[in-house]
């Protein structure tokens, strides 16, 4: 294969490059929800995409999967899957070859979106039939196997969603996302509505599946503790942009971007000592009118003139990518 000079072995499964997607809000303008996002997802990797609500995490997921609402528009960038740009692919081809078959998604709050009058096994079989040319019997058989894979007794295929607990419904949604053996799974806040014990069980399931099937996973969450439990790599998102990206241990033990550092200072830990938590003054910006320069500058304790004017480029520092003008200076690097 020409053009891939880094060698096939090092080629990421998914490479998102300078992706931009805005929503049009009538009479007001564009909400810049995904504004120049780049990252690579390696084979078998679990990437945590973390940030506060409204920073554009779900928007990024639906842009990759190309299931955008009518008022959304892609303004540029590339989504390269196994070497091919799938952002430009005709919708027909994308639906047949990519969506659900190569990339699937567990949607935020989806466990409450199961069809209440259809048996769970049938719903999973339906997803298979929609994307693959197989018979009904085979699809049902596969649905039962998928249920088993996610830790549900296959005999429960005949149950209706209301007969499942919240945790089981979320397992069923994961089964559905796995229905066509995708190489990438995006899990959007997969445990947010669940109690902590069920959450831990779902996180364990995702880990198991990831290891056993070698699926590359993007875990979208607002919870830094969940990312620490599950992910090897972390992308911290703020106001439509990734501000820091790198191996989890580096990010947690030595955060370089002021936002990451402040955010980690605000996270309570059940293993921590009692203290006053830090907070970040102010609130994230309205993405209709994001601030110029660094989008974090109005809340950043280290902001200087340049931060208000120029957008900080992504730089590689200590094996981590950071978008901050002052990073070297702040940490004496």
């Amino acid at each position: 294969m020409r053009g891939v000079d880094v060698g096939v072995a090092a080629m990421p499964v998914l490479s998102v490059q300078d992706l931009k997607m805005y929503y049009l809000v009538e009479r007001r303008g564009w909400v810049r929800a995904v504004d120049g996002v780049s990252f690579d997802l390696e084979k078998g990797e679990a990437l945590g995409l973390v940030g506060e609500s409204g920073c554009g995490k779900s928007s990024l997921g639906i842009t990759i999967l190309r299931i955008l609402p009518f008022n959304a528009k892609i303004f540029g960038g590339k989504v390269v899957l196994e070497g091919k740009d799938i952002l430009q692919m005709p919708e027909d081809k994308f639906r047949k070859e990519i969506r659900w078959k190569k990339i699937s998604m567990v949607f935020q709050g989806a466990m409450n979106a199961l069809n209440p009058v259809m048996r769970v096994g049938d719903q999973i079989a339906e997803a298979i039939l929609l994307h693959e040319d197989v018979g009904r019997q085979e699809a049902l058989e596969r649905a039962r196997n998928l249920l088993k894979l996610v830790g549900i007794d296959p005999s429960r295929a005949n149950s209706y969603p209301h007969e499942f607990s919240g945790g089981m419904r979320q397992r069923a949604m994961i089964a559905m996302a796995l229905a066509c053996n995708p190489s990438v799974m995006i899990a959007d806040e997969p445990t947010t509505a669940l109690d902590v014990i069920v959450q831990a069980q779902i996180l364990k399931l995702i880990k198991d599946i990831q290891r056993r099937l070698g699926i590359s996973t993007i875990l979208v969450t607002h919870d830094l503790s969940i990312v620490a439990d599950l992910c090897d790599k972390v992308a911290v998102m703020y106001a439509g942009k990734i501000v820091e990206l790198g191996p989890a241990e580096k990010i947690y033990y030595r955060p370089l971007h002021p936002y990451t550092a402040k955010l980690l200072g605000a996270v309570p830990s059940v293993k921590g000592k009692r203290r006053r938590l830090e907070f970040i003054p102010g609130a994230p910006p309205d993405l209709l009118y994001p601030p110029p320069g660094c989008r974090f500058h109005p809340r950043c304790p280290y902001a200087e003139e340049i931060c208000k004017k120029e957008e900080p480029p992504m730089k590689e520092v200590n094996g981590v990518k950071v978008a901050c003008h002052r990073v070297e200076e702040l940490w004496n690097l």
Binding site: V196, A200, K204, S225, D229, S269
Partner: peptide, 13 residues
């Protein structure tokens, strides 16, 4: 308590 994740990548549930 065992089920609660902590913000430390070396500590797993």
């Amino acid at each position: 308590v065992a089920a609660i994740p902590v913000p430390d990548p070396k500590v797993k549930i």
